[in-house]
Design a protein around this nucleic acid. Sequence first.
DNA 1: CCGTTTTTGCAAGTGACTTGCATGTGGGGG
DNA 2: CCCCCACATGCAAGTCACTTGCAAAAACGG
Lengths: 144, 144
Amino acid sequence: MNSPETLLRDKKLRVTQVRLDALKAFMDAGFAISIFDLMDRLENNYDEATLYRTINSFSDKDIIHTVPADGKTAYYALNNGNTNVTTADIPAHAHLKCRDCGHTYCLKNIKFGDIETEGNFKAEFIDIVIYGSCEVCCTKSEEK
Amino acid sequence: MNSPETLLRDKKLRVTQVRLDALKAFMDAGFAISIFDLMDRLENNYDEATLYRTINSFSDKDIIHTVPADGKTAYYALNNGNTNVTTADIPAHAHLKCRDCGHTYCLKNIKFGDIETEGNFKAEFIDIVIYGSCEVCCTKSEEK
DNA sequence: CCGTTTTTGCAAGTGACTTGCATGTGGGGG
DNA sequence: CCCCCACATGCAAGTCACTTGCAAAAACGG
């Protein structure tokens, strides 16, 4: 995996402190984080506008992607191969929103069966949000 | 199917002109509409705050539900039996966002196969957004 | 028809971004 | 190695989509 600095150069983004720190935070998070989570994870007090611009540039360069969940938006690090397909070869992307801890994870290596409908529409991309309990919270509640 | 007035009484909401008009608009739409679409569809110029309150009360009483799509939110009429299930009996709700006409439809009578994953999470509800072309737009492009 | 409880309209407020602009800075060219 | 300038940053102000406070108006049960 690329280091934050290498990745920025590859994506033709200037290497600055905000970008290095933010990218590292996204990489470390392991789940989708909001801009406020991001601020909390950064040592320096960067300007909010700067962080939004940072997020936008990352998003434009497909370094991170936006996760829709519950109306609130959050962000996730590297788009590293977490696009899945249905058996009908329709590309899909899935997220898990844990109702216990509130974290949103990108799901990898998901497979799902065909979608059957009565309508006559054409599917090009499928976005899936699963609400439930994540692995960590499942394990915790089993221990009780 | 209930008339707007009957439905409002059933749901213990006072019958007012805004609510009658708005509910009728939602019923007539056939697809999810935003608050701005709703305004356009109403003859009277109701206050924006009132319309938001109307939408919220409809939503609270499960008359309409919110459709997440592209970050922008839209609204749909009656929750009339458009909850589907996977073969694993996980309840799900699916929407189709047409990239041609931009409309968002609730999909009914969808069935989909099991979702297989490597993780150990527990799914309780699945939200699906399919991006593609709706029936109307598919038919149009076939005619060309 | 009356009184109470909701609802409405208006205006002001909030939260989550976005934008304008002057200042500061990374990094390719010399 | 330094210089220059396109690009980034910080600050303040602006925008967009809603929400809230409050007084006036409308519903509905009696």
